[in-house]
Design a protein around this nucleic acid. Sequence first.
DNA 1: GTCAACTAATCAGCTAGCTGATCAATAGGA
DNA 2: TCCTATTGATCAGCTAGCTGATTAGTTGAC
Lengths: 135, 135
Amino acid sequence: MVCWPTGRLLSTAARLVEHAWVEALDPLGLTHAGMVALHLLGSGPLSQTELAHAARVQTQTMSRTLERLEREGYVVRTRDKHDARRHSVVRTDAGAAVWQKSRTLEADLFPELENADALRDALLTIISASSARRW
Amino acid sequence: MVCWPTGRLLSTAARLVEHAWVEALDPLGLTHAGMVALHLLGSGPLSQTELAHAARVQTQTMSRTLERLEREGYVVRTRDKHDARRHSVVRTDAGAAVWQKSRTLEADLFPELENADALRDALLTIISASSARRW
DNA sequence: GTCAACTAATCAGCTAGCTGATCAATAGGA
DNA sequence: TCCTATTGATCAGCTAGCTGATTAGTTGAC
């Protein structure tokens, strides 16, 4: 596996880490995608398009994620007064609470790394390089 | 985004890179998952369980990937003589050819990085740490 | 030899990505 | 004003992961 291409290592590592997340979040009735949305809503209401953009995801994907969050009571969607096309998405108190709980998991889940800074650097470079066209 | 947790950066980077792969592989009638399988079959026939294990994936997932590869003619599955439960999966000539074509894409797709070695190191550490229990 | 336990593969059903198409509401130009 | 283009959200349908359950074939103990 040492000779696998870097892109494949990246996918594999991400999948395994996300698997750990799923297990940890399940008892909270939350998914990783939902957690991202709750995080982004921390600084105030957003439209679905804004949320999708911030999460680097398609609006269709965000739509479903929010549908689930709303079903769980972690989020409320209301029509915008000034633009009836837009949904104003607000994090509920329950949503804020569950997000706080989930925050503490991060440190426990992610393995300790010597070169964590180099990793973050590289990931940010990759993200900005490959998202240049879409976002 | 600079203050996102590392796990989220990892997922996002992987998703964006994989998106580039999908676009590049589509004309070949190949997916990223299929490419992994074709790669692993390069050194000879394997059973589906062995393939799944090597790709760090569930056997159910590999089953579907191979179904698609077989449909495209890149792979042939035959019942094992000695153990009729097993499928012996063989890469066809077409499969070998398409894999060769796809190999050259990797260099073009993946962004140049200064600290590529540190990245690979970190990813391998993450993979071995979080796959310890499953593989 | 028979029955139980295990193993390889698949089926059913879920979430998360994606594309392409659709619908309703808004904005803007003739 | 009206008609078109744009925009926000959703629907339909695809692949790739996953879990849990099922089926068929092997193995092993009695």
